[in-house]
């Protein structure tokens, strides 16, 4: 696109961009805060509630191990979910926006 003289502030105010932006911020920061929160819970839990982490759930596998493993599951889940949402919503909105600008 002729990068040239886009009127950036006009684009920034266009309803399509505002929608894209709002959706992204809520989604991205929301999931980021969720995953970081879980991680710090793991660290704090290991430090302050070792008794809880030592409770065995299945055989000798305890809460602590499962919680640590859950960090990976959460991360994988976010990666999959984000990929889907971005491919479906964000990329579509972005494409529409770019079309409109042209």
């Amino acid at each position: 696109m002729a990068e040239t003289q886009c009127n950036w502030s006009e684009i920034a105010k266009s309803p399509l961009f505002v929608e894209l932006h709002r959706k992204k911020i809520v989604f991205l920061y929301g999931w980021w805060a969720f995953s970081a929160g879980c991680y710090f819970l793991l660290l704090l839990g290991a430090g302050y509630t070792p008794g809880l982490f030592g409770i065995e759930v299945i055989g000798n596998i305890n809460v602590g191990y499962l919680f640590a493993l859950a960090q990976f599951v959460i991360t994988f889940g976010i990666a999959i979910h984000y990929g889907r949402v971005a491919d479906r919503d964000f990329d579509r909105l972005t494409r529409e926006l770019v079309e409109q600008i042209k």
Partner: peptide
């Protein structure tokens, strides 16, 4: 792996 969540999302 957590650092990559930050990278991925933000």
């Amino acid at each position: 792996i957590l650092g990559f969540v930050t990278i991925l999302l933000l």
